[in-house]
């Protein structure tokens, strides 16, 4: 794999290091300065290749199979049933109101039945 920015970074260091003492001997400096510049990218490339093969060899781990079940449940719990509520019918019905309604209905029916003979006989 090529790593241009990384290469530049590593090339600068040997160049700088070789640059300071070489100011007196420009002729002798050139090959010494070039040598690491040629070696470094190769080393770096080798490191990158080695590590990439090592890391890609780790492979992908798979998520637990029930993750797609757990996440909606978590959202439902946190949203208090506002999202992804999978409650059954008997869980959705507000029983207090249903009971109250039934009581009112019974009372009405009772009163109608009580009044029924008088209603029938009145005219």
């Amino acid at each position: 794999m090529s790593d241009p920015a990384g290469t530049k970074h590593s090339e600068e260091q040997p160049g700088d290091a070789a640059g300071a003492p070489s100011s007196k001997e420009p002729a002798a400096k050139e090959p010494a300065a070039k040598e690491p510049a040629v070696k470094e990218p190769k080393e770096e490339e080798q490191t990158a290749t080695e590590l990439r093969s090592l890391l890609s060899g780790l492979g992908n781990v798979s998520a637990p199979s029930d993750l797609s079940e757990r996440v909606p449940q978590l959202i439902e719990r946190r949203s208090r049933g506002r999202f992804f509520g999978q409650r059954r019918l008997h869980e959705r019905i507000p029983f207090v109101w249903v009971s109250l309604g039934m009581l009112i209905l019974s009372a009405l029916l009772y009163s109608v039945l009580r009044m029924a003979p008088s209603l029938l006989s009145s005219p």
Binding site: S62, L67, I75, F84
Partner: peptide, 20 residues
């Protein structure tokens, strides 16, 4: 639109990438 089916599908599609 908070579609539950779509969300489950999304989790199934990307769970391995995310988990890894």
């Amino acid at each position: 639109q908070h579609d539950e089916k779509a969300f489950r599908q999304c989790v199934r599609l990307y769970q391995d990438k995310v988990y890894s």
